[in-house]
Each structure stands twice: as structure tokens, then as C-alpha cells.
Design a protein around this nucleic acid. Structure first.
Lengths: 353, 353
DNA sequence: CACCCCGATGTAATCGATTACATTCACTTT
DNA sequence: AAAGTGAATGTAATCGATTACATCGGGGTG
């Protein structure tokens, strides 16, 4: 041993081990710390021999650069924040997987911010971002960090690349990744009409939802394209939850003149609605066809298996992450990406009796 | 203006804004940086007047400490890594929510590591952890970072607090948070028996799964407690997936002497099994009772609504996070926490016909 | 041969907060 | 009154990597 302390291995006494530093590597490779750093960051700026010695030393010591130091100096964290309203919702978690995947490949880590409906948390994550703990963020919540809300104190300005995913953020000038909701709703409506349905009900999402507007527009366009007139009494309000589907079902069952088909703008609502119909002694699709939206896991397992619209969730996540990475690395990125959906035909829809 | 540059607000020209530093606050409050730091970290070590001036200056500038600098100096990141096998699985995402919640309250951020079955990613996250990017980790994957695997190079030793959640890690000396699987399985088995069922089938999880062993043990104990003998032919292999439930259903339907009740060790399998029974013209619970495990979201929405065992997922996450935070802050923490499950009685189980 | 250029490398400033150590000053103790 | 005590604060070293600038030496050019 050469007397200079600081080893990478654990000592026999209980002294806490200190990680190898760039200096240790430099000493071992008999070069300066600058050369070590360069050998890693821009290999073509050092001679092949030096590079080889450095790599050898790194392998021997198991050196890993200290991210805090690196980040302090270079103002980069290689971390991305993903903000979403509800982590427990499968719809999001599949998207998250796509995001994580792509970020991982690009060398970025993913930090999750679950808002849980709390504005306090939203503010926290905004501050978090402003503090420079992440290089960029993906927003799944349809808000821009309470930017335009009445908040206390100086609303820390967020100056890093942002990407909006799924939920559009009105008025924000950031790239948006989404599914073509209008087109999807139109296609489903036309699918129902093409089977012979004339009275097609629509169970909506929350009225203030941007997605909802698009889907509703698609529904009306679909009706028009098939020469059907729009009947406001066939629109039943919902909020994407299973419970609201149950309620919508009750509304429809109590009607004199029932629709022959119902287009629900979420699978959960469709499943709730089917349940109500069953309780009322009706069967699906014989007495009424029911279509959903999203193609969640259980759409296929439901009884009857649900005809619905598949959203490419993993791909949505990948696309958003990939746009963000482009922005982070100074490349150009499209302002808007619209992914295609797919009509998934199963058993809950049939021709009217 | 006093000539010293560096403001917190944006300049009219396009110069990128630099965040306020502790020095800016110190100057404004007319104290040293040390006093600012102390005013934040240990308020009782500075005079009330100084503290007030510092807080005032912080409020005016919107100062947020630079985490990289703080972390470099203090060797703390206030980040926790959560490693799990599949982010898209609802079972995990609800747990995640509990974790995030608790970590958030304690001031920690959550980084997600989705393994996705790739050993490469596992190694990456191990290195990630070893590099000191997080203060601790929660493992949901039943592995200890490939610690005892044949890997290339020096396997970076992980020296930070770890907590195992749900999946036990055999031989690892780290705190474990789990549900009492054995007790739960025993209770469900006894519930079925108490309704009069004598032939109770068991659809298992993967044979090498620690949880599975516990549940199987509980099943046998339940039988014994009710004076029923164990019949190996009533054990059908599964792997927790819906598809394996479908298969298990086919196996059972083809039997001469069918069981009157089936206990599936996951809800997904139970749902798949019910589907097969329906296709075979049988009805549940009239012709056969079916019970699940986990109480996933759709257990209640399934047709018939599934009798199952509820795992307190959010609480599991909270407990794990809270144990980890205790460890991180140098407090004592229990070596093992077992949360109680709940028997959820719905419609898929009834007395035999 | 003198000069310039360029690639390879080293030296040391820098990022921003924490904290060991030093200093100051008011007040108590003997 | 001298000395000691302790609270409040300041000075500057420190964490570890990056990188602007300096240096060195070899090869090409006039």
C-alpha cells in the first residue's frame, strides 16, 4: 500500500467505506483528473493509450462518477419528473412503463410525482422542478404546475423542457402527445351505425375535460357521417368512473324509448353500465350493445368481452419520453404527436335485434 | 441596484436566468452564508432577529437551496429508489401510491426502477444505488440487486438501508413488510368449509414463489382445522395470470368428480377461471364457488362480484416507506411487519347446492 | 532555423451549500 | 478585576467532477 488512504474496498474495521473518486482513478492510471473526465465524456480527445489506462483503472476500482458533483458543476441531473393525477390508475401505470423504458435507454432516471388531487403537492413539485432537481418533466395532469393559479409567494418559474401527455394543456406552448380522440370516437360511432343502430347513446366524461370535447365532437361527426341526427336526450353525463357508468345505466333503463347501443367514453363506465343492464334483466349485446373506450386490462376479461377503442399506452409513454429527451439534448422535436387508436371488436356489440 | 450581478428574476434580454444562491440571500439579509444555512437547518442556533432577516430575504428572492450542492456536501440525496418487477401491474401501482405518499410527507422523492424482467436493468439500478444517487431503496422484486449472482466486474456493494416489501428476500437481513399470507389463506379455506364445501380445490401460484408457499400452507392448515383431508388431486398449478386461471378452469371442468369450490391465489386467475366455467355452461356460484386473492379493482366489478382477500396495499406501501424513513434518519425500526388482510365476501361464493 | 499550429495533457477555478474552526462580545464567577 | 463561559456569527475548507486556460512537444512551413 502506498500510504495514501481512500480505498474503494471495505476496510476490515467498521469505518464507512468511501466511494472511489476521480482522483483515485487518476492516480492509478497515472494521468490527471482532467484526462479521466475527458476519457469518459469525449473519448476522442485523449490518446488511445491514456484512454486504455483510464478504463483499466476504472474497471479495477469500480469507479462510478458522483452524480451530485457532476450535477453541481454541469447543471444536469439526468432525471425527469413525471407528474400524474393518480398513480394507482392502470391507465397511467402502463403509460409510465413506456416512459420509464425510453428514459432508461437514454440514461435518464424517472421521478414520480403523484398529485393525488392535492394542490399542495402540485406546488411542491413545481418548486422541486424549479430547484433544478430534474432536467425536464412530463405532465399527465392537464395543468401547468399551477402556473396560472392564485398562489402565495413568488410562483417559481419553471424553465426546463416540458411535455404534455394525453391531457392537453390549454394555452401552453409545449409539445403535446396524444391519441386522436376525435377520430377514435367517430370511428366507434360509425361502427355502431354500420351495424344498423339508429339510436346510439353517448355516456360522456367530465364536461370540463379537453379529451371529452374531442370525443364528443367525434361522436357527433360519426352520427352525421352516417346520416343520423343528433339527439341531445341520448347524451348521458358521466365522469369516467365505474359508478357513473352504473348511474348512466339506470338513467337509460328507465327511459321509454331506449337506445339500442351505448357508447361509453371509458371502459370503466361501460363495465358499470353493463352491470346495471344485467341487474335489470337485460342482456348485452342482445338487448343493448355497449362500447367502451381505452381498452383497459379487464375489457377483454369482462362478461361479455368489451368492444372498445385501444389506446397505445406504452407507445404514448415512449413518444413523450422520446420527445423530451430530444429537447433535453438540444434537438428539434415535433410540437404535436397524435397516435392512432384501434377499434377492438369483441362481444359487447352486435347488430340490433 | 448595487452593481453585483446575479438576480433571481428573469432579465429582459434572453440570458438564461440563474437561480438565487445562498450568497444572494446572505447579502440581502446582511449576514454570512453560514448564518443563512443555519437559519434553515437549525433555527435555534441563530438569533431571532437574524433568522427573521434571513426568512424575509428568502421570501423576497424565492430562494431554493441547490440540491446538487447540498447533496455533494452532506452525502444525502433525499431520494429513494423503488424497484419493482412490473409497473403496469395494478397490484404494485397502488402500493406505490402508499409509498409515494409517505415519502413525500417525510421530504423524500421517489425514483422508480421498473425491472421489466431484464437482469441488465437490475444491474443498472444496483449501480445507480451504489453511486449514491439515493439514500435508500424499497425492493418489491424478491431479489437483492443480483447481489448473489455471477456478474462481471466488481459487484458494487450496496451500503444503504433497504426494505423488502411483499416478496420476501430469502437470506437477506433487511426489514420485511408483508401481509400475513398464511393466515389469509387459512381463513378463506375455513370460510369455504364453513359453508359446507368438502371438496375445495386450490389454484396455486408459481412453485418457487415465497408467497405461494405461505398461502399453500394456509390452505392446508385451513382444511385440517375444519377436519377435511388434503387431496393432492385438487391442487391445480397456476402462475397468478388470468390465462393460467382459464387453463385451471379447463382442467377442473374436465374432471369426473368436480370440486364444489375453488380457491384461486390471485383474483386474475379467479376471473379467468370463472370465464371458463361460464363457457362450459356452468354458473357461479350455483354450480361452483370461486374465491380469489388480492381484491384488485375489478374484483368488485366482475360478474359475479368476487369473494376474495383484501390486501391493504396502500398501507403496505406506507409501512415500508415509513420503516425506510426511520432507518434513514437513524431511528430503530422493526425487522418485520405483518399486516392483516380482510376477507371480502361478495357473490362468487355460496353454500354448495 | 525560426516560427506557428495543433493535439495531448495538466493545473486550478468553479459549481453552491455545509460545517469545522476561529472570533467576538456580553455576562458570570471567583 | 481577571478569567472563564457560551451564544452568535463569520471565515474558509470541503464535497467531487467539469472545464477554461496554460503548457508542452512534435511536425510542418517559409
Amino acid at each position: 500500500m502506498d500510504g495514501t488512504e481512500r480505498k474503494g474496498r471495505s476496510r476490515s474495521d467498521g469505518t464507512p467505506v468511501r466511494a472511489t473518486r476521480i482522483q483515485d482513478v487518476a492516480r492509478l492510471a497515472e494521468v490527471s483528473t482532467a484526462t479521466v473526465s475527458r476519457a469518459l465524456a469525449s473519448p476522442d480527445r485523449v490518446s488511445p493509450e491514456a484512454r486504455a489506462r483510464v478504463l483499466e483503472a476504472i474497471a479495477r476500482t469500480g469507479y462510478v462518477p458522483n452524480p451530485a458533483a457532476r450535477s453541481l458543476r454541469s447543471q444536469k441531473t439526468f432525471m425527469v419528473l413525471v407528474v400524474l393525477p393518480d398513480l394507482a390508475n392502470t391507465f397511467f401505470s402502463k403509460i409510465l412503463r413506456g416512459i420509464e423504458e425510453t428514459l432508461f435507454e437514454a440514461g435518464y432516471g424517472m421521478i414520480i410525482g403523484d398529485l393525488d388531487g392535492s394542490p399542495e403537492k402540485e406546488a411542491h413539485f413545481a418548486a422541486f422542478t424549479a430547484a433544478g432537481r430534474v432536467d425536464g418533466a412530463i405532465l399527465l395532469n392537464g395543468h401547468l404546475f399551477g402556473q396560472n393559479r392564485a398562489g402565495k409567494g413568488t410562483p417559481a418559474k419553471v424553465n426546463i423542457p416540458l411535455v404534455a401527455l394525453c391531457e392537453a394543456i390549454p394555452g401552453a406552448d409545449i409539445p403535446q402527445i396524444e391519441v386522436d380522440n376525435r377520430d377514435a370516437a367517430r370511428r366507434m360511432t360509425q361502427h355502431l351505425a354500420s351495424l344498423g343502430h339508429r339510436r346510439i347513446a353517448y355516456v360522456s366524461g367530465p364536461a370540463d375535460n379537453v379529451l371529452e370535447h374531442e370525443r364528443f365532437r367525434g361522436y357527433r361527426e360519426g352520427l352525421a357521417a352516417e346520416g343520423l341526427s343528433f339527439d341531445p336526450s341520448l347524451v348521458v353525463p358521466g365522469d369516467y368512473t365505474l359508478e357513473s357508468g352504473v348511474k348512466a345505466g339506470e338513467t337509460l333503463v328507465s327511459r321509454h324509448e331506449r337506445p339500442t347501443a351505448v357508447f361509453c367514453t371509458s371502459d370503466e363506465m361501460a363495465i358499470g353500465l353493463v352491470r346495471t343492464l344485467h341487474s335489470a334483466g337485460m342482456s348485452v349485446p342482445e338487448d343493448m350493445s355497449v362500447a367502451g373506450f381505452d381498452n383497459i386490462e379487464f375489457a377483454a376479461a369482462a362478461q361479455p368481452a368489451l368492444t372498445t377503442i385501444h389506446q397505445p399506452r406504452r407507445e404514448l409513454g415512449q413518444a413523450a419520453a422520446s420527445v423530451l429527451v430530444d429537447l433535453l439534448q438540444g434537438r428539434e422535436a415535433p410540437k404535436r404527436i397524435r397516435l392512432k387508436t384501434e377499434l377492438v371488436i369483441r362481444d359487447s356489440v352486435a347488430a340490433p335485434h
